[in-house]
Write a protein that binds this DNA or RNA. Structure first.
Length: 271
DNA sequence: CCGGACGCCTGTCGGC
DNA sequence: TGCCGACAGGCGTCCG
């Protein structure tokens, strides 16, 4: 579900409601997320001031006074800021209850999301330690991708979805950016040239920024912190558009599987 | 080290 | 109408 733009949209939406507030308590209704939430987390966070809310890869980082909450939305998670008295519905697994009568509520039907608490520097957490650069940062560019891809035989789509290479590029934006850069998604990563990688890095930044500006993509259950959907779905060029005409040349968009994931491309524009 | 397959879980949809 | 398999925005783990 949420890729980088959806997580970024969520962070921007919730940060103003959380920063500077105090966490009254953490209310967990379902501990069995991707990893069970230890009961000790509830004790650890109670009473603490929220210093900052930010994003690293697809993780939401909530900095408290003595440590950090690391929240992942998995495939189907979404966060909303609600009055704490609002009755929970099915799959509303936890509330971070604030001192102003509101709460941050996680809904996650598939339970692939997770919540971790750490008192160590967050970048050293096992889940974050080996992550590659942020795609919207200056360390990410075509030269970096070109060097990192030498000798790689995997499909370029799989390559750019590898979080050790670059974070935040999920199944939707991988297809979209490869279309915009005119690269066939099955091309071996090691056989893509420097010029193409410059174009690809540029298009990854472009499509992520455009999606953030539209509030992300709401294919199924993603909603923003206020319950509104994102509007980038209507801007998708190839994802989910099998059989429809390519917006550039009119050829029929194809759907194939690469590494067990659906992939969409234009057979005429992408080689 | 690399690449590919699997599984975690619920909901939805298409075909029969 | 009901059932069943396929599939869905992620990602850690295991195996060759």
């Amino acid at each position: 579900m949420p890729e980088l733009p959806e997580v970024e949209t969520t962070v921007r939406g919730i940060a103003p409601h959380l920063e500077g507030r105090r966490v009254e308590r953490l209310l967990v209704r379902e501990r069995r997320l991707r990893w069970p939430i230890p009961a000790s987390v509830d004790q650890a966070v109670a009473g603490q001031r929220v210093h900052a809310v930010r994003r690293r890869a697809k993780y939401l980082i909530i900095e408290l006074e003595t440590g950090t909450l690391i929240l992942h939305l998995g495939m189907s998670g979404s966060l909303r800021v609600l009055n704490a008295e609002t009755p929970p519905v099915l799959h509303d697994h936890l509330d971070l209850i604030l001192d102003d009568g509101r709460c941050l509520r996680l809904r996650d039907p598939r339970r692939f999301g997770s919540l971790h608490w750490t008192t160590d520097p967050v970048e050293e957490h096992p889940l974050l330690r080996h992550l590659g650069p942020e795609p919207l940062s200056d360390d990410f560019d075509g030269d970096y991708l070109f060097k990192a891809s030498r000798g790689r035989r995997s499909a370029i789509k799989t390559f750019i979805m590898d979080s050790k290479i670059v974070v935040g590029v999920g199944n939707i934006y991988a297809s979209e950016s490869l279309f915009l850069a005119h690269i066939h998604p099955k091309r071996a990563a090691g056989r893509v040239g420097e010029i193409r990688y410059r174009m690809l890095a540029y298009q990854i930044k472009q499509v992520l920024n455009d999606s953030i500006a539209a509030g992300g993509t709401s294919l199924r259950d993603f909603v923003r912190e206020d319950g509104a959907p994102g509007y980038f779905e209507q801007a998708l060029r190839v994802y989910g558009r099998e059989g429809l005409p390519c917006p550039r040349c009119g050829a029929s968009i194809r759907q194939i599987r690469i590494g067990q994931r659906s992939s969409f491309y234009c057979p005429h524009c992408q080689r």
